[in-house]
Amino acid sequence: MDVMYFAWVRERIGLPRERVETQAATVNELVAELMAREERYAAAFADTSALRVALDQVLSDFDAPLAGVREVAFFPPMTGG
């Protein structure tokens, strides 16, 4: 699946998007896999209560299943308007 990062999450991880091959069943499992990779991922995902997640461009939750999802995006709370 494609994993995207925005705002300070993108800056901390150092890239805007990447292709991730995973068997993770939920967003939380995907986060755990990413955190185990490298310190920059561990730092970005240290406090998921400060993050939001979108699945296929719709706001979702960290306990949501990933079955059939093609695009996951992580970002801080939005500051539009």
Binding site: A7, L59, A73, P76, T79, G80
Partner: peptide
């Protein structure tokens, strides 16, 4: 519309 755009539209200000 303003309340929802502030918190539910994916924009980030720096």
């Amino acid at each position: 519309l303003m309340d929802y755009l502030k918190s539910r539209a994916p924009f980030w200000k720096k």
